[in-house]
Amino acid sequence: MQTPSEDKQQGKAAEWSSRSVGSNWQHQFFYLAIKMGGRRLAYLLLYFVVGYYVLFSRLARERASHYLQRRFPLATGMQKLWHCYRLILSFGKVLIDRAVVGIMGPESFAVCLDGREELLKLRDENNGMILMAAHVGCWQVAMSALDFLQRPVHMLMRHEDGDIDRHYYEHAGIERPYQVIDPTGYLGGTLEMLGALKQGQIVSVMGDRLLGSDRSTVAVDFLGEQAYLPFSAYKIASATGAPVVVFFTDKDGPASYRLQLAKVIRVPELSGRSEETFRPFAAEFSAALEGYCQEHPYQFFNFFNMWLKQQPIIEE
């Protein structure tokens, strides 16, 4: 059953876009601050900018509320604002860190990887590997820390025209460390993903949001309500024998990140495409993600309403 606020949100579904809330000059302002005073100066400015957004941007509050109202269901009035402030502040810090890595070099941050040996073992199975991340922490950190696998990495992602926050490699002017598979391309990029996995390569996908023309979702419990997660990756895993490696990153210090292998999901050979077939695997992912949210309540940056059955069409 939907709440009145959800009904209202459903009406707005088609308007949803992942484009940056801030304007271009605001991003440039922060890049300049990083160049002049490093990460600390940028953080200092961020406290005020986030305060402004939380107080005066309804859009920012609304986007944060999908998650926060489920993660902190008992929060009232000022508590809600405080949670919103902390969440957006953490997100801002991640965006700054991403720029710092590009502008000042990767040595600006320490990255600790848990699960290196297991990842190497999975790689050596030669069935390819589906790295399933989520919009938590800073997934770009993970991508920059996977060199040791010595396999090409393909990332299913879409850089929207309105996205003005740059990736760390764009700041650094270096070659992108992964190849992009466009989910709006031919057959949603599935053939490219299959091809890469068959060659023992790595495909990275987001397990918590639909991309491109994919409309295959399955309802699973997430933070006490039914959320709709994509299941195409599990179908691909079933077809190729590739393990689904769930990994999350978290910012565990002012200048450090932790990359953690949270779970390995094995999908046996399964025929058909019903959501029921793949629900158990999506539920495994959801449980891992919920565990992450309990541990790191302010590092979940999926501002998309994943509890909405009618999935929004992302603006072209």
Binding site: T190, L191, S213, D214, R215, K235, R273
Partner: peptide
């Protein structure tokens, strides 16, 4: 096979390859 015509989609493409 895809889109108009048989109306298969990207998930069917995976099944089709298999």
């Amino acid at each position: 096979l895809f889109g108009e015509g048989l109306g298969l989609d990207s998930l069917d493409a995976v099944e089709l390859v298999v």
